[in-house]
Design a protein around this nucleic acid. Structure first.
Length: 563
DNA sequence: GCCGTTTTCGGCCCGACTGTTTTCAGTCG
């Protein structure tokens, strides 16, 4: 997310939290949350938009009042209203909302009755049994709070899509084996192909929901049953991943998939469109008065509000509904569009041969086996020989690549003499992710100027790092000028890319490469997430280099090799 | 606080589950 938008969104969210605790009108609170989300979702900094002549009030959810506050925040980093709220409530109190079971009402009670205003005081009150006697609290709630604060319960964190898949897919398969279960599908942000997911939403069609709920809560990897009911249950899996399961009747399946795929903002928008037509849209179907008029399929639900089916990747209420109305939904890149995978990892003669065979089975025309210069050292002379064995008469054609680290000054960790022996050189930021933005940006810009670099990898994820601060627009412009492709991969070894990076890349005409970075054959499966993520950001096949036949790539590869 | 091709006022998505209650508020998604 653009940096300044992120801080505006944070201020608006904090105002929403504080108002909520004060017991303000919930629609007013929601207005702040909607605005925060709206600003956070913009691909361009608001001040840049304003310089370009866009009025803030043109942004959905921003009216004259919030526009003024946003300008205030842009100039001063805060706004008068937030300062006023801070004088009425302690600043740290919003931390309490992050504890499960604590919402605005209970936080207010804790503050008013026990003067609790931060996590330390909350812990002490729970330990001394002061909380159980408060109105609306009891022993169980006190215990939950105690455990949460002590960190025994895994705090909510997001999981890379490919990691979540390793837990969610086997669980779905486990549930499909229950007799009477006809479907189990994963919805939520997983289906929308967000780079990271906070939890997993599953939708099941079952004749008897008790059997599937039993099977669900007794799944071996379940570490905690959060709730269990006849139609909905929630559990925690080993890595702290929450899974919610909803069981419904067959004729509700489409409505349930729309509902649980979200996003929330998309759902609210389509339900409002339903309301305009006198319809009620919920997870069970579309209703006019008491009679159900749709719900078995997603298409039937969208048809009631005169929309075509919208791909899940686009369901964010960021213009996809308007595009659907106008018939201008983009044609998204799809897994079947990929002609090659330019980043397989493996050791010569060992796992690489297996992955190449697996790529062949998937119908890929070409692959590039990439060696890590650290593992390989200066002994690159071995590479061509090792690869000769991989290149067999049948497709795919095997290219050779090398991934090389970028030093702080932007030079590469391997000499030209080695780099030029490979078909493809990929430069990657592997350390010092926390450099200040200007230095990090300059580091990458310098790397783009190095001879032979044809592709820029996403940064390598280090110790759960969540951000990589660069001026991505500048990097994209330089990459376009230099003919360097931007690689996108959802392999967990990479730092998850923010949506805004791909959106900037698409807008500015960068060419991207979608890679699996598979280290073993099974990991080729991560391609579907990477493609889904690119689709989510609106990429069509033409802008994806490896959706083109190898014959189209020759010029690009050769021009970098010859440099 | 936002929004409007019926509205400048009166709406704003809505249902499941838990724990605290004696009929429902609060939280969550």
């Amino acid at each position: 997310m653009p940096e300044r938008n992120a801080s505006i969104a944070a201020v608006l969210d904090e105002i929403a939290d504080l108002l909520d605790i004060q017991g303000a009108n919930s629609f007013r609170v929601r207005a702040y949350r909607n605005a925060a989300r709206s600003i956070g979702d913009l691909g361009t900094e608001v001040d840049v938009l304003m310089e370009g002549g866009t009025a803030l009030t043109e942004i959905p959810g921003i009216g004259t009042d919030l526009a003024k506050k946003i300008v205030d925040i842009l100039h001063t980093g805060t706004c008068e209203f937030l300062e006023q709220l801070h004088s009425e409530l302690p600043a740290a109190i919003t931390q309490l909302l992050k504890i499960p079971a604590l919402g605005p009402r209970r936080v207010r009670t804790l503050y008013q009755d026990l003067h609790i205003e931060n996590l330390e005081q909350l812990l002490q009150a729970a330990q001394t049994g002061q909380i159980r006697g408060l109105p609306g609290f009891g022993e169980k709630t006190e215990q939950r709070i105690l455990e949460a604060v002590q960190g025994r319960i895994a705090m909510a964190r997001r999981h890379p899509l490919a990691v979540a898949a390793r837990y969610a897919e086997p669980l779905a398969e486990h549930l499909r084996a229950v007799s009477g279960v006809t479907r189990v599908d994963i919805a939520g942000s997983y289906r929308r192909m967000r780079a990271t997911v906070g939890d997993i939403d599953m939708v099941a069609i079952a004749a008897d929901s008790t059997a599937i709920m039993e099977r669900f809560v007794s799944y071996p990897s379940v570490t905690q049953v959060i709730s269990k009911g006849p139609t909905r249950s929630s559990v925690l899996l080993a890595p702290g991943l929450q899974v919610d399961l909803r069981s419904l009747a067959e004729d509700s399946f489409g409505a349930a998939m729309v509902y649980f795929t979200g996003s929330k903002a998309h759902n609210i928008a389509i339900r409002r469109m339903g309301q305009d037509r006198g319809l009620k849209i919920n997870e069970y179907g579309v209703f006019r008065e008491a009679s159900r008029i749709a719900g078995a399929t997603e298409e039937s639900v969208y048809a009631t509000i005169d929309l075509p089916w919208i791909p899940p990747e686009l369901r964010e209420n960021r213009g996809e509904i308007e595009a659907a109305q106008k018939g201008t939904l983009p044609k998204l890149v799809h897994l079947s569009d990929l002609r090659g995978d330019l980043h397989l990892r493996g050791k010569p003669g060992e796992s690489a041969a297996e992955i190449v065979d697996a790529a062949r089975a998937r119908g890929l025309e070409y692959v590039c086996v990439v060696f890590d210069e650290r593992a390989f050292g200066v002994d690159a002379g071995r590479v061509p020989n090792a690869l000769a064995a991989l290149n067999r008469p049948a497709s795919p054609r095997v290219l050779t690549g090398i991934e090389v680290g970028i030093d702080l000054d932007g030079t590469l960790d391997a000499p030209d003499a080695i780099l030029r022996q490979f078909d493809l050189v990929i430069a990657a930021v592997r350390d010092q992710l926390d450099l200040p933005r200007t230095l990090q940006t300059q580091r990458v810009l310098n790397a783009l100027q190095q001879a032979h670099v044809a592709m820029l990898a996403q940064p390598v994820a280090i110790d759960g790092a969540e951000s990589f601060d660069v001026d991505f627009s500048t990097i994209v412009r330089a990459a376009v000028e230099r003919g360097v492709a931007l690689e996108f991969s959802m392999h967990p070894r990479r730092l998850a890319p923010p949506d805004s990076h791909l959106e900037i890349a698409r807008r500015d005409g960068a060419r991207i490469v979608i890679s699996s970075e598979a280290e073993e054959a099974a990991e080729l499966d991560t391609l579907r997430f990477s493609v889904g993520f690119a689709g989510r950001c609106g990429f069509a096949p033409a802008q994806v280099l490896n959706a083109h036949p190898l014959s189209d790539l020759g010029g690009w590869l050769e021009s970098h090799r010859a440099r």
